[in-house]
Design a protein around this nucleic acid. Structure first.
Lengths: 262, 262
DNA sequence: CGTAGGGTTGACAGCTTTCAAGAAGTGTGG
DNA sequence: CCACACTTCTTGAAAGCTGTCAACCCTACG
């Protein structure tokens, strides 16, 4: 009955002192390629790793941007502070993902970023990135793929937020979380939430109590097993089915004039 | 009492046959620069303009992507069709904005795009864009700024969706719409909605009736004047104040360890 | 050991969805 | 030119759900 807790993950989290230039484990090497080691001495890519303490901010909303950051290890939340001082959690960011890329638009960070746990990031000078885009073949497409990935996330966000009920929205959050776990090569079934209920609520536009209730409901339905921040997906099919029904309208008679191009 | 309707805008919409290579009015020239005319003959940038009829699809979700599109004139909605056949409106796209850039991630469009009215777009071959990024100085930053702009939109979306009530969410929608109008140099006070109530509802995750009610409420409050798809912001301050109160929590004790970087 | 913070659960008020009907505008065909 | 059908938008009333406030449990930490 009592399964082994995700203790190994906890340990892994604590001991996540990352290797630097090893292509196997360096997010930077995965982005730039194996030739990364030769770039730094040449002055083309003076990329440095930074450590961010738990609850420490990395990006400051509205601040002048000189760097983007590539997450090597740890977990961040993207927050936007409204004019009224209320914070909204826009997204969560994990290893191999980009922070602060939105600053490419106008040179300022449109949102803040806070580490949810001890984290390590690569500081990418925006100027240096531009040099790499022009000089290093293949880098431009890697970089743009990373940017495009962020754009695609907007769609995921809209999909999640468009769900009607609090429980359905929570179900979709779990699905997305699981999918991202899988992208990082981790188990898509046994999840360790790196954030608290309040941050989840802030992200989904719900009350923390509703998150709690939704988790309890999904647990009682036998779809999830919930133990504080440890979550296990017991019935993925049922979870997807549960998350399916949404506001929206069946694909109406689109395609009446399919070919209208010149 | 009866103000002049936005007739001139309607007319403008109808007569929007765009000029091609004039830097003043060509979205492509604004993106690439005045040298755009020299690229096409050289075979570097074989960009062509396409006309899309009303209600005609431009992007097909899941289809192999060879082009991104830059909107020259008209209006689009970005839609995602769920596995259950229900459509979700992710965003709306207007002149000078990008369609299908998310395909840079994995070569497939993650969402579809449908013209809400007769529209014209520049078809940008993705390969050609890559060539421009490397060869044309200054283009890379323009291009990336455009991509970054899309990323920043995700934040706007989250902000809008995080509002609690249907009326507040609608108010935020109007604010964003107004802001985008201003970005395009149009009046931020007198708005012409290019989409129907149902698309708005689909976008906000609400029922169409709720949109109607929210508009009526804002109109009765003297904040908006609503006449079908013509909307005028009568009291911008009140509108912002109305949209302010949101779910979320006052900036909690962040910054306990402000400096934790190496 | 005591406190503080996070998570869970319960009850009521408020709001949104749903279903239904009516009004207004648009396009077509006679 | 008119009439009809169609779509879109609006408005009304009841049911359902979520937010709020409150209390309680648990763990972590000093």
């Amino acid at each position: 009955m009592t399964q082994i807790p995700l203790a190994e993950l906890h340990v892994l989290r604590r001991a996540a002192e990352p290797a630097l230039a090893d292509p196997q484990s360096s997010a930077l090497a995965r982005l730039v390629g194996p030739g990364v080691a030769e770039l730094a001495p040449a002055g083309i890519a003076p990329f440095a790793m930074r450590r961010i303490g738990e609850n420490a901010p990395l990006l400051h909303q509205g601040a002048q941007a000189r760097h983007a950051y590539l997450v090597q290890a740890g977990y961040f939340k993207i927050v936007r502070i409204g004019e009224d001082g209320y914070e909204q959690v826009l997204d969560f960011v994990a290893r191999d993902e980009l922070l602060g890329a939105d600053a490419l638009a106008d040179g300022r960070y449109t949102s803040g970023a806070v580490a949810l746990e001890e984290s390590w990031v690569w500081a990418l000078e925006l100027d240096a990135v531009q040099r790499l885009v022009r000089r290093v073949p293949g880098f431009a497409s890697h970089w743009q793929a990373l940017l495009a990935r962020q754009i695609a996330r907007a769609g995921e966000l809209a999909w999640m937020m468009a769900a009607v009920g609090a429980d359905k929205r929570t179900a979709r959050f779990v699905i997305l979380y699981s999918r991202r776990m899988a992208e990082r090569g981790q188990s898509p079934r046994r999840l360790l939430l790196h954030m608290g209920r309040r941050d989840i609520a802030c992200h989904l536009g719900l009350a923390p109590e509703s998150i709690s209730r939704a988790f309890s409901l999904l647990a009682d339905s036998g779809i999830l097993r919930v133990d504080n921040r440890e979550i296990e997906i017991l019935d993925a099919g049922a979870l997807h089915h549960y998350a399916l029904t949404t506001r929206g309208y069946p694909e109406h008679a689109t395609g009446r004039r399919l070919a209208a191009a010149a």
